[in-house]
Structure formats: C-alpha cells, structure tokens
Nucleic acid binder design. Structure first.
Lengths: 340, 340
DNA sequence: GAACAAAATGCAATCGATTGCAAATTTATT
DNA sequence: AATAAATTTGCAATCGATTGCATTTTGTTC
C-alpha cells in the first residue's frame, strides 16, 4: 500500500520549505536551528509518519546504535535454547539496551562466522558485542577483543582477560551453597556440574573452601562433570545411585535446571528431600520457588547484570576505561535444604 | 586496533587490480564475472578479513536482511520476560531466520513507538516483522498490516485477520485437555486463564465442547480469569480453596507456568494429584516433565511454528500469497492426571 | 584476418542522511 | 545608519556498495 512515493528527508524538507540540512538538524534537535523551526519540522515529521532511513544514517555517521548479543553456546549441549536463566538475561539486556537507545541484534555462536569483529563490527551491523557465556574456551572472544572491538562478557569476573567480564561472585556462591549444606549436617556433598568452565571452576573452589573450613574432605568422586542440562543431571544421579547406592547427602548444582533434573531422579527413588539429601541450585529462576520442595538456590541479580554489562560496553564505545564487575549474589534458602 | 585504514570494497578492488563493480559482483558470486576472477577476489577478501559494509549495502539495495521480532507483551503482566515458552520460540525463530539468511532484531512492545511499520520498516531497520502474541487487542498489529508491511503473528490461527496468524490448534488443545480429564472421571473441571485472549478463547470453546460431549455442565464459576503467570495462578487457587473449599477436581491451564503455580498451591494444601485433582498444562516446556508429579500438557511444536512463521513471512517478502497455518498440537499424558 | 557474437569488465549514477563551511539573516553596538 | 557580532539556514561533499549501460576483451566463423 505504499501509495505515495517514499518519504525521504529531502521531501519532508521541501514540504517544510527548508533545506535538507535544516530538516536533518531539526529532527536531531540541533540547537543550531531555531526552536520554532525545530518544533515545526518535528511536528510535520510526526504528521507524515516520517522516520529517518537508518541505513543511510548509519552509513553517514558510522554508527548503528545496534548491539549484537551472542548466546555463546557450549558445543553439543543445548543449554542455551532451554535454560531460562540465559533467556531471562537476554530479556534484561534488551531492556537495558533500549533504555540507552540501542537495539538488540540476537545471534548465537553457531551462526555468524568465527570472526565476530569482522562480521558484526567491521561490517557495520552493530557497534558492540555482548557475549553471554564464556564457553569452554575463549578464543573467539579473545580474537574479537584483540582487534579492539567493544565487547563485554557474562561469565566469571575473576577471569584474567583483555575484555571486561561481568558475573556473579562464583567463588562465594559455591562457597555459601556448600557451607549451607554442611551446616545443615551434610557429610558427603557432591558437586554437580563441569568444573572446566571458568564460572564453575570458581564455584568449585568455593566448594572446596567450605569443606576445608568445616574440616571435612570431599569424597573422591565428589565432582560430577556433566553437561549443564537437567537431562544429564537426571541421568547422572540415576546411574550414580544404581551403581553406588546413595553415597551422598547433599548436592551443589551449577544451575537450577541441573538441580531440577537431580531432584526428579531423587524423588523417583523416594529419596527424602531434604531429610536424606539436601540440594542447592544456582540462578534462582522463577521456577525455583515453584518446585516441590521449593529449591534453595544462589540468586544472581540479572537486572543488575544487564545494566552493568551495558554500562561497561558504553564505556568502551566512549573510550572510557572499563573493568570487570561483580553482580550481587545471595543464598536463597528454601525447602530443599531446610529441615523445619 | 584498527591500525590500517578501514578496508572498503574500493580498496579491495584496487588490491585485486579490478574495478569496484567487478569486486562487488565477484563477492556476490555473480555469473557475469569469470569464475577464476571470482575465486581470486573471494580469496583476497577472506585473506584480508574483508566484509561488506552492511549500511551501505542496505542503503543501495533497499533490503536489510533483518527481521524484527516483537514480544507483544500483555500490558501489566510480565508474562513474556518470564515465560519459557515464548523465549523458546524466540530461540527457534532465530534458528529459522538464520537458516534463511536473515538476522533477528529483538524488541518488545514497550519500546519502539506504536507505529511498527514506520519504526521498523519505513526506517529501513528491518524487512519484516514477526509478532509473538496477539495481546488483548490487535490494533497495533492491524495498523502495521494495513500499511502493507510484511508481518506474521504467533497467535490463534482461526483469527480473522488481514495478516497470517500461525498458532496451535487451540480449540482442539482445549478440547483434548478437558476431555482427558473428564475421561479420567473428573466431574468439576475449571478453566484457569483469561478467555479474553484470542488463543484462550478457542481453548475455552474446546473446553465447553468436551463437556457437552460428556453430557456435563461446567459449574458456574468454572472460568477463572487470571493473568498468565504462575504467581496469579498460585494465589487464585489458594484463595479459591480458602473461600469455597475444594470445589473442583480437574484444572485445565492455559500455560505450563500457570499449571505450576496451581500445582504448588495444591501441594501446599496436601491435595492429592491426580487423586483429588487432575491438572493439565499447555505448551510442554522442558520443565513439565521434571515436575513432581510430571505435568500432563498440550505440546505445541515450537520448531515447526518458527519455520512456518518464517516461511509465511518470506512469502510476503516475495509477494506470494500467504495464509494462516496451524501447528501440530498434541496431548502429552504424564503423572499429573494419570492414576496408574 | 575481417566480422561478428559472446563473455568479461569498467564507468558513473544512485541509495538518503549528515555536517563542515559558507552565505544569509537578524540583532546589537556605536 | 553603518558596522560588527551573533544567530539561522543552505550548499555540496561524503559515507560505501550496487547496477544499468557502455566498453573492452576473448572466442568463433568464414
């Protein structure tokens, strides 16, 4: 139905009886233009439903006002498409970016060649990159960062890196989850998740620290390296009990989804929770409190996370100094660990 | 560090000793150019990490290869940022779009003025729009569609509309959920969700049909219009039982999240599931089977949904005829309704 | 080797907005 | 009233890739 020919700035200017330069400046609220003129042109633009051609504007200004958000999936797990925590974070990033006048281009690490800097930035598709997840290796991230591209990563803030990393305090998260279980009287706590990832590694360190403080040695097979999915967790716990019997009385999980999988396996075997086994999740997704029993977990403030990430990215865009930042992290005690 | 000056097509052409036209055509694999030349230039581009300036290309070609995905939130509920189903759909859309060479610009209905056609399309930010959710009113959608913008909506496919709507068969979903409960012997089934929305309305019709077939009249207060969140559901069920006692023995929920909220309330009151109350969800999100008891639900094939939406959108972009489409919908029976 | 067809390449205009600088207009100053 | 200063506005180049048309190169045929 584009009945009239396309409305360009030039045509709008003509309608207003001014030059395109004036029109352009007026729309951008440039103080060079008399207030009255600005008002008039802005009103006219609104009346005619005019909106600046983004492609042309980006070409000319060399700025897109778009930020690429990359879900950095871990190969061969489908964590990201399923995990509500990550998607929640995407939602929060969307809000935070919009608040600062940016739009969000969504990608995952499977698409978009391996050279992010090239694909997103040099091609002028976006001004900066937000990465969700460090993955097992950070080569792609490092590569992009090396080439001077504005980039911020959600991961473990303690990571030594050339780019800022925003993340919860994983050490303290792992520590307080474990300590909580030990304090409740657990003697054999297992760690459910792959300590190879940067974030998990820190949590595992916290796990060890808590044990140390309690003067307890984790059992030999305390570390259970599994994929970060509820399915893996379910299978693992099943197999473990089948093979060894119930040789643990507490579980520290690396995500709520993992905890749910474990919970299911335990319930099916009529293991009492928390009487026989206490269980702590990570993330505090909205379902955690809906579980039965409700899930004790480590809460990470996603809204704050998103705001910090965006703030650090904007710092880079403005050539200001940047730094890694830690997001609030706290233990939320619920029924999966609490014996009334 | 962008040490060298920015690499443009012109510079690349110079390096290759050809004109920019040839370089451009070579990169686009235009058969006008000798195969040998094409190979050479493509190799050179790769070697120098060249990638075409998207802004310039979009300006010239009048095509962005970007699709805007709008999470059409229902005012004053936060359904969308929390509901895993919707976010899952976004993930699937991302895959489906990428497979067709499009990128995904994420938005929600709060930002981006009210005039979507204007904001996204006329401004040349995107070539088309995918809307997730019809909301309570479709004015914004209708407005955009009226102005001839390529647009496809996830909602109820039976909706009479000028734009194609992709959705599950809500009537049949509501019907089979209800029928299943009645067949299991339920006498007083309630409908948990707001029948004002197009999708829910259809499901409610199915609910009525099933009752009719069983020769049962739904009770007066069978319809429970609540927000589509687990919290509302939890509160509602709590209040209801407090006020009326347990005056129902089956619940048809409009989403799994709603079902979870109801489930929690029931469990806290030691209502037996499914012995006292059977419960059916909708969507089959990954957590449905992890619940205890696992949740009987209506599964909607999100991958197929995404593919259909993208296909219909591309039809519009190609000026081919389009149509609303129905996505596979099936009852998945689990423990929340099945008395062994 | 001339004549013509086919294949390959290049020229130059174009997409639409922005912005440095120059020009025109208005206001202030003496 | 004349000139300087300040305020507004307009001219024209620019961002970088694409493409219709013209031109050159290569190949074919007699």
């Amino acid at each position: 139905m584009a009945s009239e020919t396309k409305l360009t700035l030039a045509k709008l200017a003509e309608l207003a009886g001014v030059s395109t330069s004036t029109a352009s400046r007026a729309l951008n609220d440039n103080p060079l233009i008399k207030q009255e003129t600005r008002n008039k042109i802005q009103a006219l633009a609104k009346a005619h439903n005019f909106s600046v051609n983004a492609a042309a504007s980006r070409l000319r200004t060399q700025k897109t006002n778009v930020i690429a958000v990359i879900l950095n999936l871990i190969d061969n797990t489908e964590q990201s498409t399923t995990d509500p925590f990550l998607l929640k974070l995407v939602g929060e990033l969307n809000q935070a970016l919009n608040a600062k006048g940016y739009e969000l281009l969504l990608s995952n690490s499977f698409m978009a060649s391996d050279d992010w800097a090239n694909y997103f930035i040099r091609s002028q598709r976006a001004d900066g990159i937000l990465v969700i997840g460090q993955g097992k290796s950070d080569e792609k991230i490092e590569l992009a960062a090396q080439s001077g591209v504005p980039i911020v990563v959600w991961g473990d803030a303690k990571t030594e890196a050339t780019y800022p990393v925003i993340g919860g305090d994983n050490f303290s998260g792992g520590y307080s989850a474990t300590k909580h279980l030990l304090t409740q009287g657990a003697k054999q706590v297992i760690f459910l998740g792959d300590p190879e990832h940067a974030e998990m590694q820190e949590r595992y360190r916290g796990f060890l620290k808590a044990h140390e403080e309690h003067g307890i040695l984790p059992s030999d097979n305390a570390v259970c390296a599994i994929d970060i999915t509820s399915k893996s967790a379910y299978q693992f716990i099943n197999d473990r009990i089948k093979a060894n019997g119930l040789d643990f009385d507490g579980i520290v999980c690396v995500s709520d989804m993992v905890a749910f999988g474990a919970l299911k396996a335990l319930k099916e075997r009529y293991v009492g929770i928390p009487s026989d086994v206490g269980i702590v999740g990570y993330d505090d997704i909205s379902l955690a409190e809906l579980m039965h029993p409700s899930l004790t977990t480590i809460k990470q403030n996603t809204q704050q996370a998103a705001e910090l990430m965006v703030a650090q990215l904007i710092n880079q865009l403005d050539n200001k100094p940047t730094s890694s930042q830690v997001v609030e992290t706290s233990l939320v005690v619920r029924r999966s660990t609490k014996l009334d």
